[in-house]
């Protein structure tokens, strides 16, 4: 089965991971800009990062037949530096017309602070003015519920934001319905310890249905598994769910969401005459 990983940080992964993903049926990855593990010191640090995301990374993926797309922002962890954040937000439009750019992301909150909210709102304003799609990070652990509700408050306050072009990521059992009920897309991140597991993600699909739900690995430089989406596929199959339901969540839903971005030019393998991958 072909699948799409809609949130994975490939700059932190090896080329071997691209090969493994390709063997497992991955045809598209989308990579939001995120925290490097340290706070970058200048706007030029971000300019270099966006250069890597929009040039080298897409070439590295293409050599394994995977299409690489990306999202641009300064992440919430670095948003405490409001002046640097504003410099980065002002620079982002230099890259928005590059091939493979899908929108603004992953913006959001980390510790739900005033500065994070300020920078989040300024990213929303940029997305609205440039008609870009939005990909949103929600906080971890005990801060997730309050942070998700704050994010939804801010999104719902801005009438320019189209929920059907906005993905709220890292939902879990206590936040998924708030996101879906407000009309947004919701992403479930499959992590070994925090966030969701393949089994709990399958539970959420069973409880909420597949509409506007995505699953991703968010594979990055920390403990994470880039092949987590195939783990979800296997869990769904083990429970006896239909191939059409599984395909909807891991392929058709992200495809439908991404197709709303002007930078998404992916030609589905079935349209190009290729036969379906049978690796999993």
């Amino acid at each position: 089965m072909y699948y799409i990983d809609p949130h994975i940080h490939m700059v932190s992964r090896t080329t071997d991971d691209y090969e493994t993903l390709a063997k497992m049926g991955c045809v598209v990855v989308s990579e939001p800009a995120f925290w490097a593990g340290y706070d970058r010191g200048s706007v030029d640090g971000f300019r270099d990062y966006f250069e890597q995301l929009t040039t080298f990374e897409s070439r590295r993926a293409q050599s394994y037949g995977i299409r690489h797309y990306t999202w641009l922002c300064i992440n919430a962890k670095e948003a405490e530096n409001v002046s640097l954040s504003r410099e980065v937000i002002a620079m982002i439009p230099e890259f928005l017309d590059r091939p493979g750019v899908l929108g603004i992301g992953e913006i959001g909150l980390n510790k739900n602070t005033k500065n994070e909210a300020t920078v989040f709102l300024e990213h929303l304003d940029l997305a609205a003015k440039t008609d870009e799609q939005i990909l949103i990070h929600t906080p971890h652990l005990e801060d997730k519920y309050q942070g998700t509700r704050m994010i939804l408050d801010m999104l719902n306050d801005d009438r320019r934001i189209d929920p059907t072009r906005t993905l709220v990521d890292h939902v879990e059992e206590h936040t998924v319905r708030h996101v879906l009920d407000s009309g947004f897309w919701a992403g479930m991140t499959l992590y070994p310890v925090s966030k969701c597991t393949p089994a709990r993600a399958a539970d959420i699909v069973e409880m909420c249905g597949p509409e506007r739900l995505l699953v991703n690995s968010a594979g990055d430089w920390g403990p994470s598994k880039p092949t987590a989406v195939p783990d979800f596929i296997l869990e769904m199959r083990r429970r006896g769910h239909s191939e059409s339901l599984i395909r909807r969540v891991v392929y058709e839903n992200p495809l439908q969401f991404f197709q709303q971005s002007r930078g998404f030019d992916f030609e589905p393998p079935e349209a190009s005459g290729a036969t379906a991958a049978t690796a999993i």
């Binding site: 500065n115 519920y145 309050q146 509700r149 709990r200």
Partner: peptide, 26 residues
Amino acid sequence: RAERVQMLFSRPYNDQWRETHKHSTS
């Protein structure tokens, strides 16, 4: 149960957060 356990480990939602932020110095 999973949702209730999640809520147990979560800070409660403060719907007055905008007011709190207006007065915070962070």
